[in-house]
Structure formats: C-alpha cells, structure tokens
Amino acid sequence: MAQPYLRVEKLVKRFGPFTALSGVDLDVWPGEVHALLGDNGAGKSTLIKTLSGVHQPTEGQIYIEGKPVTFRTPRDAAAAGIGTVYQDLALNPLMSVTRNFFMGRELKGMFGMLKMDEMDKVAHDEMLKIGIDISDPGQAVGTMSGGQRQTLAIARAIHFGAKVLILDEPTSALGQKQQMEVLRTIKTVRERGDIAIIFITHNEIHSKLIADRFTFLSLGEVIGAGTKEELAGDDIRRLMAGGAEIEDLAQMLA
C-alpha cells in the first residue's frame, strides 16, 4: 500500500462562468472508507461525477495507481475500476434480482441464451458475501427494501470489477435500521481490503461510525482533510457545517 489507488490533484471544474470545484485534492486508499462531506452545493456530486467520467475536468489530473488517466465516458471510468452507485441506483423495479444484477452484462451461452442457473448463483453468492441472504433471486427488485436494493447495487458494482466504490448518499433515503444495514455492508466491503470506498453523506454519526479518512468540501474547495485520528470529534461537526461553529448555527435558529 505504497500509493493510493486513486489520486486527484488540483481538480478544477467550471460550468461556464461558475466554478464548481476549485483545485480539489483527494487520495483514496484500498481497504479504507473515505468520507466526502460538505454542505449542499459544496461540489460533492460534481467531484464524483468527474471521477466516474460523467464530467471532464477543466484542469487538474486524476491518477489510478500512480498513472495519469483521462475518462471520456462513464465506460472508461468503469473499465479503470471506478464503480459508482448513484442515488437512484440504476435498478429496474419490475425485473428480478438476477436480471438486474447482470443487466447489460449477462452471462450467455449458445444463441445468446442466458445461463440463468449460474447467474442466479452468482447474484445470490455476491450478495451473501456483503451480508444479505436473498432467498429467491427471482424476486422482483420492486418488492425489496431500500437497504436490500442498495446492497444489490453495491454487490453488482463489486462483482463487475470496481476497485473504487463510490456511494452517493447511500443512507439518505432509508430508515434507521436499514441505514445500519447499509453501513454494515460498507464495513464488510472494507474488510476485503482491496476496495477503496468513497462515501458521501450529510450524516455526521454515519461518517464517524465507519470512515477512516475524511475530506470536507465547502464552496468547491477542500477546507479540511485527514484521518480519523487526526481529526477531533468537534472538528468534524464544524467542518461539516462548512466551517461555521455550532453555536453560530444555534444563533441562526434563535
């Protein structure tokens, strides 16, 4: 682990006159959860969209295992091992777990025939590995809980070769218990040791529970970064609010 799997240097992204990111640095290490925090509009989604090939950087450079790379399309990024799980998860509710798992990347034999048994088994096993036992891989995704869907999308990204797993607010739409389920899933993935996880959240508690490293964005700039040990608990709260003191926030409500 001499170098980070993914490194971002002085990344700038402008939309016309608007600077969404102004010189962001980021290191992501395998086997670590990297929490990306910041207020609404700070540029978190813009940053991960640039990492997954949706946007091209205006300036700056992305490195994978030390080598400079350019992603023209999401496909390029996926091929380099960037697996992004967007908030809408890119799932089809009417289709079965297995059919969703392999959507677009089906295992096929003669005449394009699906190897359904093998696919069922892979989907089931991959989800079991990160902690959810789906009893029927033929179950429609629409009938699954939010946490289970999140797990399906994560398992799919890992199975198809993700080395960096990017999760954009994976817990935001879930109830308490399911949030914990997703956090446990993230933990299981971290324990494999070979996958780096970028975890975007607005939830201070969640980030403290599982993150090893933090980066705080505010108005397109990194206003703080470091490992769990380097940052004291109070710092995290202050930085999450974009540098404001919690007393100031209390003032705003008064």
Binding site: P74, R75, Y86, D88, L89, A90, L91, N92, P93, L94, M95, R99, F102, M103, G104, R105, E106, K108, F111, G112, M113, L114, M116
Partner: peptide, 22 residues
C-alpha cells in the same frame, strides 16, 4: 431465455437504468 430478452425488459422498465448499465 436470452440476453436480448433481458435488454427488452430493461428498456421498458427504466430506460435510464438500462442505459447506465450498458
């Protein structure tokens, strides 16, 4: 039974999700 069949279902269910998955 085939890959194209899976694509047909995926296209009709959620086009954007299908596209995002290739």
């Amino acid at each position: 039974r085939t890959q194209i069949g899976n694509w047909i279902f995926a296209t009709g269910d959620n086009k954007e999700a299908a596209r995002a998955n290739g």
